[in-house]
Computed example of a mutant assay.
Amino acid sequence: MSLLDQLNNDMKTAMKAKDKATLSVVRMLKAAVTNEQINLGHDLTADEEATVLSREYKQRKESLAEFENAGREDLIEQAKHELSVVEKYLPEQLSEAEVKAIVTKAIEQTGAESMKDMGKVMGVVMPQVKGKADGKLVNETVKAALQ
């Protein structure tokens, strides 16, 4: 089942359950996937779907951080709910240990020795973890390994 089919089914389920909060998030995700499909001019591959979902997840995570900094309790709960809905569609996330193993392997492959080689390492690591790990975590792991 494609992501769009899954989103359509979940949208119908949310409508029947009169779950307006979930319905709103599913509709936003469906719109983001559809817009990406239109922009690219073809059906999305699994990697492209993961990219769209990761982008949506990151936006909501950043919004949550902003709401927490501003002390907006009313919006924090909504943002947390949106994050939980988006997480259902993301591929299973890699653990820190798995990311470290991938980074270590990439450093060996590229022969990286210092922070100057960070771009090489990131270039090897990111395609492997796309949609499966937070870019910030990967960045911090690479920095720690190269220091």
Rank of each mutant, 00 (worst) to 15 (best):
30 K>D: 05
55 R>V: 14
110 T>D: 07
10 D>L: 11
102 I>W: 08
115 M>F: 11
106 A>T: 04
113 E>R: 09
26 V>T: 02
126 M>Y: 08
125 V>G: 03
98 E>Y: 14
93 Q>H: 11
14 A>M: 01
88 K>M: 08
82 E>Y: 03
59 Q>V: 12
132 K>H: 09
71 G>Y: 15
68 E>A: 03
99 V>F: 03
62 E>R: 04
90 L>K: 06
125 V>F: 00
134 D>T: 10
122 M>D: 01
29 L>E: 07
106 A>K: 03
66 E>P: 05
68 E>P: 01
67 F>G: 03
125 V>C: 03
144 A>N: 15
43 D>E: 06
82 E>D: 10
94 L>K: 12
64 L>E: 12
96 E>S: 15
116 K>H: 09
117 D>Q: 02
101 A>C: 03
137 L>C: 03
53 L>G: 06
71 G>Q: 15
41 G>Q: 02
36 E>K: 08
127 P>H: 01
100 K>R: 15
59 Q>W: 11
25 V>C: 10
141 T>I: 02
130 K>R: 00
53 L>C: 05
25 V>S: 05
16 K>T: 13
15 M>K: 15
58 K>D: 06
4 L>V: 12
116 K>I: 07
147 Q>L: 06
12 K>A: 10
43 D>Q: 08
27 R>H: 09
51 T>S: 07
110 T>I: 08
70 A>F: 13
82 E>S: 09
115 M>G: 10
135 G>Y: 01
133 A>G: 09
16 K>Q: 15
27 R>E: 13
67 F>M: 06
96 E>H: 14
21 A>Y: 11
63 S>E: 14
32 A>K: 05
20 K>S: 11
45 T>H: 02
124 V>I: 08
53 L>P: 05
15 M>P: 04
52 V>A: 02
12 K>L: 11
2 S>E: 06
88 K>N: 07
117 D>F: 01
85 V>S: 01
108 E>M: 07
52 V>R: 01
107 I>T: 10
86 V>Y: 00
117 D>H: 07
61 K>G: 06
15 M>I: 13
138 V>A: 02
119 G>V: 00
